[in-house]
Design a binder for these strands. Structure first.
Lengths: 340, 340
DNA sequence: ATGAAAGCGCTAACAG
DNA sequence: CTGTTAGCGCTTTCAT
């Protein structure tokens, strides 16, 4: 690859001048500019980003740490992040930790070593928060992309998404349709990150005078298989449920499948509502009614927050940006309750 | 972030010695090593990757260019690539071009500018092959991840996957089940990249004495919606089909949905077979019979090829690695033909 | 308007 | 065994 020196030589100027015209700084005569541009063009010159990063003290990359790109939501989100990052003139490095702490540390160390200028963290749960704090203390901006624990003050700058409200909205929808026996499939452990979604749901039921019994809730994991298993267990224990609230779309798809297994027709026999609105939600049959989370907005805000921190060079305080409220998306998986 | 100089100062040695102990080169006394390591530890030293990349003439990153991370197959593949790349000690930069040439050029220019040491290209169809050739001519290794055109000599090093054979296998499976009226839904234009999958299918049918009529084939796009639309058109034109071959899993899911729309039961009334074996293939109901492509192997081979080129510094010839043969995965969407 | 010079943090000979 | 030196490609004062 041609260097700035070669371009300068060809144009009959010094590297400094080449740099000036390429970055539009300093005063350069139109004629010289022309000559330099032409030389650069001719040589196919591309600035060496490493050299630039070194001298400028920062690379033009942002890292996105995800625990597993296998969960279909993450790539969707990563896509949005990538777009936002590019819009700010940066490149995105995807750091898939595979839920492996060693892998994560390797990534974070590399970021500390100027692999990337800042870190966007998708899921704070699978991540060693201490590592992130250490990184931050060394001057590396860290932003949490989707904070969903209103009871805890985030230890780092973050974008907050009101998943509690998403649970409320899902419950209200089911209640509105006349459902009273509603089961819940939660895609995390009782102390896990979906708990506020469930609380929003349960609180709303309680307000309507409906108290969930323990056997009407199943906690598990955020996967289709787990959702299916939970639904099976749920229906076995409480056969007269007319609706199931699911804390995430992925397990909701599993619940849909369990209904097929059990010969139940959705939504005639059973209504199902999820949260997030991943792409597949409208691509399955019956399509999934769900509470859409502002994914692209959250990505946008996270990047914006990152850029703010970078610009102001203030990495110490914990700013929080609030994403807009989740929205109900009614599709085919929910219907008015029917006596059975 | 602490630099190598600071570590040296703290340990009472020069930067060179620090570098030596950190990289395990040169002879260093055990005692000094100890001291240096401790100093590095204490300062939380992480080597600056940009400086290292600059002096070594190459960054520790590999770029993966995908046309759209929105297609669920790409993230799955990206995951595999990421793992393989990490295993080789590199980091992965995901370059999602969104099918936008400008975006792609921006990425390729950045790679030319040492953003990454080499480029892995997922789908050569959406990519300006000229750009890639230019890049290669400047000494940047370029590898095509999944070459599926046996009639054309790849212009660049690549991993070849025998999609023609995948089509053959799918057809044989359907034939074996007694199907004779078989439709085809192709997820690309007639000249597009799925054409060899279809040819494998059609040739096998022809060998069995079955000639596809034009109305029994629908060309379209690689998406669920396109698959659904094609299936609707197909069934409208040829109602007595007992099976449909689909060139990819994504449109195959659409075909499955079309069957639901039409009140057809799969596999009783209609058998459906896809190609690839994406995650969702076994997560839908009925689960999808498909011809599994060796995804992780292809990713592995692509990275391996990249590493070979990097090591041997030979970027000029067009090596090709052959991935192993696709394998039939029988699930719920295919069954023995039944008279209707 | 352009050039000279210093330096970002690190590595790689080569000296000592 | 450890230090010295030079330089990767670029940006950025400061001179001219």
């Amino acid at each position: 690859m041609a260097t700035i020196v070669e371009v300068g030589r060809l144009a009959g100027v010094t590297p400094a001048t080449v740099s000036n015209v390429l970055r539009g700084r300093g005063r350069v005569s139109a004629e010289t500019r022309e000559r330099v541009l032409e030389a650069a063009q001719q040589l196919g010159y591309k600035p060496n980003l490493n050299a630039r990063a070194l001298v400028e003290g920062r690379p033009h990359t942002i890292a996105l740490v995800v625990s597993s790109i296998a969960n279909p939501f993450y790539p969707e989100f990563a896509l949005e992040v990538e777009k936002a990052v590019r819009r700010s003139g940066y490149f995105l490095i995807v750091c898939n930790t595979n839920n492996d702490p060693a892998q994560e540390i390797a990534y974070l160390d590399a970021v500390g070593g100027a692999l990337a200028q800042g870190v966007l963290v998708m899921n704070a749960d699978f991540v060693q928060i201490d590592e992130l704090l250490t990184l931050r203390s060394r001057g590396v901006p860290v932003v949490l992309c989707m904070w969903e624990k209103p009871d805890q003050t985030p230890p780092l700058p973050c974008v907050a998404v009101d998943f509690y409200q998403a649970g409320v909205i899902a419950a209200e929808h089911l209640l509105m349709l006349g459902h009273r026996r509603i089961g819940a499939v939660v895609g995390s452990e009782p102390t896990g990150n979906h708990i506020w979604r469930y609380r929003g749901f349960a609180d709303t039921l309680a307000k309507a005078g409906i108290l969930q019994r323990p056997e009407e809730v199943r906690f598990g994991q955020d996967s289709i298989d787990a959702g299916r298993n939970s639904a099976h267990a749920l229906m076995a224990a409480v056969p007269d449920l007319t609706a199931i609230f699911v804390s995430n779309d992925l397990p909701a798809l599993g619940v849909l499948q369990a209904a097929v297994d059990l010969g139940l027709s959705v939504p005639t026999d059973l209504s199902v509502v999820g949260i997030t609105d991943i792409q597949f939600a409208h691509q399955v049959r019956p399509s999934l009614t769900t509470v859409a989370v502002p994914t692209s907005e959250a990505a946008e805000l996270a990047v914006q927050l990152m850029m703010n921190i970078i610009d102001k060079a203030k990495t110490s305080d914990t700013e929080m940006l609030i994403a807009s409220t989740p929205q109900l998306v009614v599709r085919e998986s929910t219907a008015r309750v029917r006596r059975r």
